[in-house]
Amino acid sequence: MNAEPDGSTETEDDPTPPAPLRYGAPLTDSRGQAVVHPSRDTWLEVAEAALNDGFDHLTDVTAVDFLEYPGRRDLPDGVEPQRFEVVALLSNIATRERIRMRVQVPVDDPTVPTLFDLWPGSETPEREVFDMFGISFVDHPDLCRILMPDDWVGHPLRKDYAVGRIPVQFKDQGASL
């Protein structure tokens, strides 16, 4: 509902210079924050390289559903946009450096390898992403719903999932009592 049509020309970086690489994945800059864009195949390799480089703290794992915003422009060349994007925020406790990993996940095969074996702290954030977006983390030790009831149908934070608003009703005084 808030999607801007593709015509919006607001882009922060010119796509002409090729993006530099970090851990073998394209590196971009978003408002001064470093972002790497691995593919699903290189997701674990890049993560492991980052871990070995000192990013010992997995701050968060989350996801975005780009169904209503296909015209986003902040991806470097060579990264094919898909409907879902899984975002992992890493930080280095000692140097306080931060980096963000964003991976594109197609809707017809919503799976990503789990980061649990690198950072065990990814367990509940990944469960939350599974619950809210329906993205499965392959090899996750305990992938089940975390916030919604076990038997809930659907994944609430997907954009094609309505917010579930009900109209406010003013009841008759006699009817309900």
Partner: peptide, 26 residues
């Protein structure tokens, strides 16, 4: 932390909160 994605409109396209209690619960 707040991770925010904007699509240029007046509403956040995605607003995610990194809640410390949620992660500490692990």
């Amino acid at each position: 932390g707040v991770y925010m994605v904007s699509d240029g409109s007046s509403h956040p396209y995605r607003m995610h909160v990194r809640a410390p209690s949620f992660v500490n619960l692990q």
